[in-house]
Design a protein around this nucleic acid. Structure first.
Lengths: 149, 149
DNA sequence: TATTGTTATACTCTATAACTATA
DNA sequence: TATAGTTATAGAGTATAACAATA
């Protein structure tokens, strides 16, 4: 039996915690936390708007968690909720101009925080990490409902 | 500016969340959660006992969080707290026989959960991930106070 | 009947500060 | 005065269940 330091699950949680901490600290100047930032960023990635259901799926959260996050971003004037013409059950969340500008600034801050927390890894190693995690994330998404807005 | 899906910090948090969820589900049959498991496992890794301060440092937690975690493990008969002879301020936490046996079972369960959550990555890719994260974790530890029990 | 969004609730985790006992 | 552990508290994150509106 290996030691805890070799446990992949533990290592992921440990490093993720450090990176989230650093990113939250970096994002504080924009009055954002990583959770809100991720919702804003994903919204910006979908110019036509994205449903709250899909936001939840992409972020690995429960749909009920999305409600208050979007509420906060709406209150800050960074995104808007509008009814989808095709299906009036769904709300399409779209970024405002202010939201897009904030997203740009926040992305730089968050990336700098993460890079700092992972500075013991070379740029190439960080790139390898990104490729592996991206592959796992894409697979996780494709499994849980391949389609839908 | 890249998309959120290329954000290393986001990917770490996203995948870590999936893996922790899977590990918690797998550990339920042993009435453990990953957080308690990590304390138990680390305690087992130090046969002579480990101070709560060091537990906190290795796990990336605040010392105040360790108290109740150790309390729970003591109540379950998995670890013991005893005063260090050299410095009576420090409590050395040591695993009991039952604790060591549970750790073995729990480690297998947690590893299986993590492997399942990361099944889209080959064994080799998971090994690469482990090496990179291990390097980052070791560096993080060496920075914050290189020595001490 | 099934799905989207919402509300409510309970529990876990994180972050800080203050306190005690020892050194 | 500094350090190990403890207590307390507030806020953020996670997990479920139930409900209204719409399909």
């Amino acid at each position: 039996m290996g030691e805890l330091r070799d446990d992949l699950g533990f290592l992921l949680a440990r490093i993720s915690g450090d990176v989230v901490r650093a990113a939250n600290a970096a994002l504080a100047v924009e009055s954002l936390r990583v959770r809100q930032y991720s919702v804003l960023a994903l919204t910006c990635d979908f110019a036509e708007g994205i449903s709250q259901r899909r936001l939840a799926r992409e972020l690995g959260l429960d749909p009920s968690q999305i409600v208050s996050l979007v509420d906060e971003l709406v209150a800050a004037g960074l995104v808007e909720r509008r009814l989808a013409a095709a299906d009036r059950r769904t709300r399409l969340v779209t970024a405002t101009g202010a939201g897009r500008r904030k997203r740009e600034r926040a992305a730089n801050l968050a990336a700098a925080g993460a890079r700092e927390a992972l500075r013991s890894l070379s740029d190439e190693e960080q790139a390898t990490l990104r490729v592996l995690l991206s592959k796992a994330a894409t697979a996780a998404l494709d499994e849980a409902e391949p389609r839908s807005l």
